[in-house]
């Protein structure tokens, strides 16, 4: 059995500690060690965006980050997006616009959209499409997702 390293990081605003092997990605750590299964594995090589999280304020594919790399960093996942009693406006917009079908890509899209709106609160349709191009959805044809993100931007 490979050696496991001790890592301390900030996860959705709370300090957490975990043990992981160097070869475990942040995605594996979130899902298998911390039991936060909102981030999904769609391709495990950075091409689908289903595992998107925000690392130190920057959108990343958690399958392309090693768990050990998050020592001393801050990670935001889909589980931390809503307030306890209220959804985030992006989440509301996804529901209102029916911007999900199977829902497997939805956490990744919401994280990606959040990172976009945090940086650019009033994106154009093209800017939304460019920013979200790393997130694959196979159900919706993207129409309602793009509308949801534009709606959320308008609402914020």
């Amino acid at each position: 059995m490979a050696r496991r390293s001790h890592v301390q990081t900030t996860l959705n605003g709370e300090t957490v500690e975990f043990l992981c092997e160097p070869r475990q990605s942040l995605l594996e750590v979130l899902r298998d060690e911390l039991h936060l299964t909102g981030a999904k594995e769609g391709c495990n090589n950075g091409n689908c965006g289903a595992c998107s999280v925000i690392l130190d304020g920057r959108l990343v594919n958690s399958c392309l980050v090693l768990g050990v790399e998050t020592e001393g960093k801050s990670v935001e996942t889909i589980e931390g997006v809503a307030d306890p009693d209220k959804l985030h406006p992006i989440q509301d917009a996804f529901l209102e616009n029916a911007a999900l079908q199977c829902g497997i890509c939805t956490p990744g899209f919401i994280m990606s959209a959040k990172a976009l709106l945090d940086e650019n609160p009033n994106p154009t349709e093209h800017e939304v499409r460019y920013w979200l191009a790393g997130n694959l959805c196979r159900c919706t044809g993207y129409d309602k997702i793009v509308r949801a993100v534009l709606d959320a931007a308008a609402a914020e």
């Binding site: 950075g46 965006g49 920057r58 594919n61 980050v65 990172a115 191009a133 790393g134």
Partner: peptide
């Protein structure tokens, strides 16, 4: 290079 998430790393 990649998408937005790749460009973050």
């Amino acid at each position: 290079i990649g998408g937005t998430a790749i460009q973050g790393r």
